[in-house]
C-alpha cells in the first residue's frame, strides 16, 4: 500500500525536477546567448504544463509590471516628445506627423537602450551595487528635466514595491534555489530604501533613479533578465506612444498598431542585444539632439507634460 504512492510521488518529483532543469537551461541559454530568438530558447508547452508553478509565477509578475495601470506616473512625461514636436515645427510638406513620430520613437528607444538599459541590467545582475548605480546614473543625467522624470518614476516604483508587491514577493518560498536572486533583489531594495530615507545629502546622496530600481524590482519579483529588459523598453515605447496620442499626433488605434508592429519588436530586440553586454561605464548618449530637446522642454511657452 505504501509503495505505490511513493512511486507516484517520486515520478512526479522527477518530472518536476526535469521541468525545472529544462527551465533553468533555457534561462541559461537566454542569459548567455541573447541574440538567439526567444521562441527557440523558451520552454516547450509540455514543460510549461508540468511546471506550472515555477513558470507561471514570473509570468504573473510580468503581467503586473507591464500593466499601464502600474502607478508610476509615467503618463506625466513625454520623454522629450513635446519639445521635439515644437522644435521641428512646421514640418516640411514631405514629412507627415506620423513619420516624424516614428523617427522620434526610434531615436528615443536608441537613447534609452544605450543610456538607461545598461543600468537596468547591471542592477539586475549586481543588486548589491544599487546605490553606486543610482549615483552613476544621476551623474550621467545631463539635465534637471530628465532627472526629475527618472527620479519621480523611480520613487513611485519604490512606493509600489513597498506598499503593494513586497508582501507577496519578498517573503515567498526562500527554500527554492530560483529565489536566491529574488531574495537578493528584495534585500537590495530594502537597503536602498533605508539609505534614501536616512540620507541628509540632497546633492550627492541616493536619488532613486528609475532604471536601476526597475532592474532590482524585476529581480525581486522573479523575472528573468531578458524579460526585465524587454518590459523596460516596451514600457518606454508605450509611454512615448501614449504621449503622442495625448499630444494629438495620432489616434489610439494608430498607436496600438505601431506597438503591435513587427518593426517595433525588431527595434526592441536590436536595442536589447546592443545594450546586453554594455557595461555601465560605457553607457552613453547616442542621440545628442535628444538631450537638447529634453533640456529645452522648460522653454516651451505652453506644455501639457511635466518638465
Amino acid at each position: 500500500m505504501t509503495v505505490e504512492p511513493n512511486v507516484q510521488d517520486l515520478q512526479n518529483e522527477i518530472l518536476d525536477l526535469e521541468a525545472r532543469l529544462q527551465n533553468a537551461k533555457s534561462r541559461l541559454t537566454l542569459v548567455s546567448a541573447p541574440q538567439q530568438a526567444p521562441e527557440a530558447a523558451s520552454p516547450r508547452w509540455e514543460d510549461l504544463a508540468l511546471s506550472a508553478d515555477s513558470v507561471l509565477a514570473p509570468s504573473h509578475a510580468l503581467l503586473l509590471l507591464s500593466d499601464s495601470a502600474l502607478p508610476l506616473g509615467s503618463f506625466a512625461y513625454s520623454s522629450g516628445l513635446e519639445s521635439y514636436i515644437a522644435h521641428n515645427k512646421p514640418l516640411p510638406r514631405s514629412i507627415t506627423p506620423v513619420a516624424s513620430l516614428h523617427r522620434f520613437l526610434r531615436l528615443s528607444l536608441a537613447s534609452m537602450g544605450s543610456l538607461s538599459l545598461p543600468y537596468v541590467l547591471a542592477a539586475y545582475r549586481n543588486p548589491t551595487n544599487l546605490e553606486t548605480f543610482d549615483n552613476d546614473l544621476d551623474a550621467s543625467t545631463p539635465c534637471p528635466v530628465a532627472q526629475r522624470a527618472s527620479v519621480a518614476q523611480g520613487r513611485a516604483l519604490l512606493g509600489v514595491w513597498e506598499r503593494a508587491f513586497r508582501g507577496a514577493y519578498a517573503a515567498s518560498s526562500p527554500h527554492l534555489s530560483r529565489d536566491v536572486g529574488a531574495w537578493k533583489g528584495a534585500s537590495a531594495i530594502e537597503a536602498f530604501s533605508d539609505a534614501l530615507k536616512s540620507s541628509t545629502d540632497d546633492e550627492l546622496g541616493p536619488k532613486g533613479h528609475f532604471a536601476p530600481l526597475w532592474g532590482v524590482v524585476c529581480l525581486a519579483m522573479g523575472m528573468d533578465a531578458r524579460q526585465t529588459a524587454y518590459v523596460f523598453m516596451l514600457n518606454h515605447a508605450k509611454a512615448v506612444l501614449s504621449a503622442a496620442v495625448r499630444a494629438s499626433v495620432m489616434g489610439p488605434y494608430q498607436a496600438q498598431s505601431i506597438l503591435a508592429s513587427r518593426d517595433l519588436q525588431d527595434i526592441l530586440a536590436e536595442r536589447i542585444d546592443l545594450g546586453w553586454q554594455t557595461a555601465v561605464e560605457d553607457a552613453g548618449q547616442v542621440v545628442p539632439s535628444l538631450d537638447l530637446w529634453v533640456g529645452r522642454h522648460e522653454l516651451l511657452y505652453s506644455r501639457i507634460f511635466n518638465s
Partner: peptide
C-alpha cells in the same frame, strides 16, 4: 519661450 500654441503642423509658425 518657444511659442508652440497649436500642435497641428499646418498652423503658422
Amino acid at each position: 519661450r518657444i511659442g508652440a500654441r497649436n500642435w497641428s503642423s499646418s498652423a503658422p509658425a
